[in-house]
Computed example of a mutant assay.
Amino acid sequence: MTPPIPVFDGHNDFLLRLVRNPAARQAIWLHGDGNGHLDLPRMRKGGFAGGFFAIYIPSPQPHDAPDFEAMMNNPPFDLPLPALIRHEQAQPVALAMAGHLLWMERAAPGAFRICRSTADLRACLADGVIAGIMHMEGAEAIGPDLDALHLFHALGLRSLGPVWSRPTVFGHGVPFRFPGTPDTGEGLTEAGLRLIAECNRLKIMVDLSHLNEKGFDDVARISDAPLVATHSNAHAVTPSTRNLTDRQLAMIRDSGGMVGLNFATSFLREDGRQSAAMGWEPVLRHLDHLIAHLGEDHVGLGSDFDGATIPELIGDVTGLPALQDAMRAHGYDTALLRKLCHENWLAVLDRTWGG
Results as ranks from 00 to 15, higher is better:
Glu190Pro: 00
His31Gly: 06
Ala119Arg: 12
Asn233Trp: 10
Gly180Arg: 04
Leu323Glu: 10
Leu323Trp: 15
Leu268Ala: 14
Thr230Trp: 09
Ala49Gly: 12
Asn12Ala: 09
Phe152Asn: 08
His289Ile: 11
His63Arg: 15
Arg20Asp: 13
Arg158Thr: 05
Leu340Ile: 14
Trp29Phe: 13
His231Met: 10
Asp127Glu: 14
Arg201Asp: 13
Ile310Tyr: 05
Pro167Glu: 01
Glu281Gly: 03
Ile142Trp: 02
Leu349Trp: 08
Arg86Phe: 08
His293Val: 06
Gly355Val: 01
Leu349Arg: 03
Met278Trp: 01
Ile196Gly: 04
Val129Cys: 02
His293Ile: 05
Ala24Lys: 03
His210Met: 06
Leu38Met: 15
Pro321Ser: 06
Leu268Thr: 14
Gly50Trp: 00
Asp224Ile: 13
Arg116Asn: 03
Ala139Ile: 04
Val129Tyr: 02
Ala24Glu: 10
Ala65Gln: 15
Ile310Arg: 05
Arg116Pro: 00
Thr181Asn: 02
Arg273Ala: 09
Ala197Arg: 15
Leu227Gln: 04
Phe305Ile: 07
Ser117His: 01
Ala329Gly: 13
Arg20Glu: 14
Arg113Lys: 09
Phe48Val: 05
Ile314Arg: 11
Arg338Ser: 10
Ser275Met: 02
Trp353Tyr: 04
Glu213Gly: 00
His330Ala: 13
Phe267His: 13
Asn35Phe: 13
Asp207Gln: 04
Ile252His: 08
Ala96Phe: 08
Thr265Asn: 15
Gln248Leu: 07
Tyr56Asp: 07
Ala220Pro: 07
Ala329Leu: 12
Leu149Ala: 02
Glu140Leu: 00
Gly279Thr: 10
His235Met: 10
Gly180Ser: 04
Thr245His: 08
Asp271Asn: 09
Asp127Gln: 12
Ala111Met: 13
Arg338Thr: 12
Asn262Gln: 13
Phe112Val: 15
Ala229Cys: 03
Leu349Pro: 01
Met71Ile: 10
Phe216His: 06
Glu213Ala: 14
Gly187Asn: 01
Leu208Ser: 05
Ala234Gln: 05
Gly128Ile: 12
Ile55Asp: 04
Met43Thr: 11
Thr168Met: 06
Gly307Ser: 11
Pro62Ala: 11
Gly51Phe: 01
Ala322Cys: 03
Glu186Gly: 03
Thr238Cys: 15
Gly110Val: 11
Pro311Gly: 05
Asp183Asn: 11
Asn74Asp: 14
Thr352His: 02
Leu287Lys: 14
Val19Asp: 14
Ala123Tyr: 03
Leu249Tyr: 13
Val348Phe: 00
Val348Ser: 01
Gly295Phe: 10
Glu270Asp: 11
Ala308Met: 14
Leu193Ser: 01
His330Gln: 13
Pro22Tyr: 00
His11Met: 12
Arg194Ser: 07
Ala94Lys: 07
Arg247Glu: 15
Gly256Cys: 10
Pro76Glu: 07
His289Arg: 15
Asn21Arg: 12
Trp29Ser: 02
Arg273Gly: 08
Ala225Thr: 10
Arg25Asn: 00
Ala329Ser: 13
Val317Asp: 01
Cys341Tyr: 02
Ala264Asp: 11
Ser59Phe: 07
Gln26Tyr: 04
Pro239Asn: 08
His153Cys: 12
Trp29His: 06
Phe152Ile: 06
Leu244Arg: 05
Val237Phe: 09
Pro75Ser: 07
